[in-house]
Structures are given as C-alpha cells and as structure tokens.
Write a protein that binds this DNA or RNA. Structure first.
Length: 105
DNA sequence: GTTTTGACACCCG
DNA sequence: TCGGGTGCCAAAA
C-alpha cells in the first residue's frame, strides 16, 4: 500500500512542509479532485495554497503521488508537470469529467 | 538577511 | 459574464 510510499517520502529529502502536502495528497480518494485551497487548509495553512502548488511542482515522487487530482478552486485544471493534457486524461480515467480545461464538479 | 519565483485565490471594474 | 490586478505562503538564489 501507500505505507511504503509514505516511508519513502519521509525518508526522502525535502522540507517538512512539502512532505506534509504529499502525505495529504495520498489521502485523496480515487475519482475525487481537491482544490489547492482545501489541501492548504488541511495542512494547517488555508492561505498557503501558493506554497502547496510550489510543493507539488517539486514532487519527485510523481505520479506515484496523485498530484494530478489537485485542481484550482475555480474548477480550472491548473498546471501539471507532465502536461495539462496528461492531467485531464488521468482525471477522466478516474471518473472526473473535464471539459475544455474545466473540471465538472 | 533580502529579493524573486511559482502547478493559486480573491476582489474590483 | 469576462478580464485584469493584488495578496498569500514557502523555498531557492
């Protein structure tokens, strides 16, 4: 399960804040998309959505970490290290409806 | 220690 | 309804 992945993240190099973001990322259920604001709030800083986005960009464990399940608050897909098209494809593969870079909630 | 960048969010026109 | 500008936090140079 993700236990080994969690151990890898904690054992890996990176700031505690980023690790926290990646751990919370693993808590996202399949077929569900979270917003940067919600994720930031869960880690303890509802206004740190900026730092969250930066943390995901530095995520060396992608796509093992479901960073592609994180979208903007305005239902926008946002960006993805592997490409927005790839992100949309993964979202659709998990049951999330995405149209023209917009996520159907 | 200070400044700039970045996978965003919110407000105003 | 759509577009532009400002504010937020953390990490790296």
């Amino acid at each position: 399960m993700s236990q080994k992945l969690r151990k890898q993240i904690q054992s890996g190099v990176g700031t505690p804040f980023q690790k926290r973001v990646w751990l919370e990322l693993l808590a996202i259920p399949k077929g569900t998309v979270w917003t940067y604001a919600e994720l930031a709030k869960k880690i303890g800083s509802p206004k740190a959505f900026r730092a969250v986005g930066t943390a995901l960009g530095a995520n060396p464990y992608a796509p093992d970490v479901p960073c592609h399940r994180v979208i903007c608050s305005d239902m926008r897909v946002g960006e993805y290290a592997f490409g927005r098209k790839q992100k949309i494809a993964l979202l659709n593969s998990e049951g999330v409806v995405v149209s023209s870079g917009r996520v159907e909630k």
